[in-house]
């Protein structure tokens, strides 16, 4: 006679990354996070093209933060690069996440953006844990779990011979 106790949390309801519920939810999170960035980027592209002048201004205003003089220096000396890079990379990061292509690489970009938003917005009126930090954590989660493997193109790419022969690519895909 079986002595197994029925466990309603067993099977697909436990937090193993290969379980259907976890895969489903990670895919939803990835697409929603991707849409968030895609929308932010593409609306800047529609309204300002590749000349998003607010970006260098924002960076120049980041004085006295944990990032030291780096953002101010970037806003002052790299304005020509920052202006097109912000809308372009937000859009590309968003697209990559929605499709699940190069998910980890794109998410690293997302972490960089969110770091600048979190540190730069800096009001911290409701504490250090705010929406920007949550966004940063979301992108970090995409990297940790390799969210592109769940209903994403990376799942297909990782099965190709090209990637199998170059396993380090899985640090960029996944």
């Amino acid at each position: 006679m079986s002595t197994k106790t029925a466990n309603p949390l067993a099977g697909e309801f436990e937090l193993n990354l290969d379980r259907p519920l976890t895969a489903y939810w990670l895919a939803i999170l990835r697409v929603v996070t991707g849409w968030w960035f895609f929308h932010a980027g593409v609306t800047k592209l529609i309204e300002d093209g590749l000349a998003f002048g607010y970006a260098p201004m924002y960076l120049k205003g980041m004085t006295g933060t944990a990032l030291g003089p780096i953002p101010v220096w970037m806003g002052t000396n790299l304005a020509w690069l920052v202006e097109p890079a912000v809308p372009l990379f937000e859009t590309l990061i968003g697209l990559a996440l929605m499709l699940g292509v190069l998910t980890r690489l794109a998410s690293v970009g997302g972490v960089m953006f969110m770091t600048l938003f979190w540190v730069g917005n800096a009001g911290f009126g409701h504490g250090l844990v705010n929406g920007d930090l949550m966004g940063l954590m979301l992108f970090a989660t995409m990297i940790v779990v390799g969210a592109g493997r769940y209903y994403g193109v990376d799942a297909v790419l990782e099965r190709t011979e090209f990637v199998k022969q170059r396993p380090r690519l899985r640090y960029l895909l996944g």
Partner: peptide, 11 residues
């Protein structure tokens, strides 16, 4: 699912 747990495949 709380009231009707899924059937254990092994069982």
């Amino acid at each position: 699912r709380y009231t009707v747990p899924p059937m254990d495949v092994d069982e």
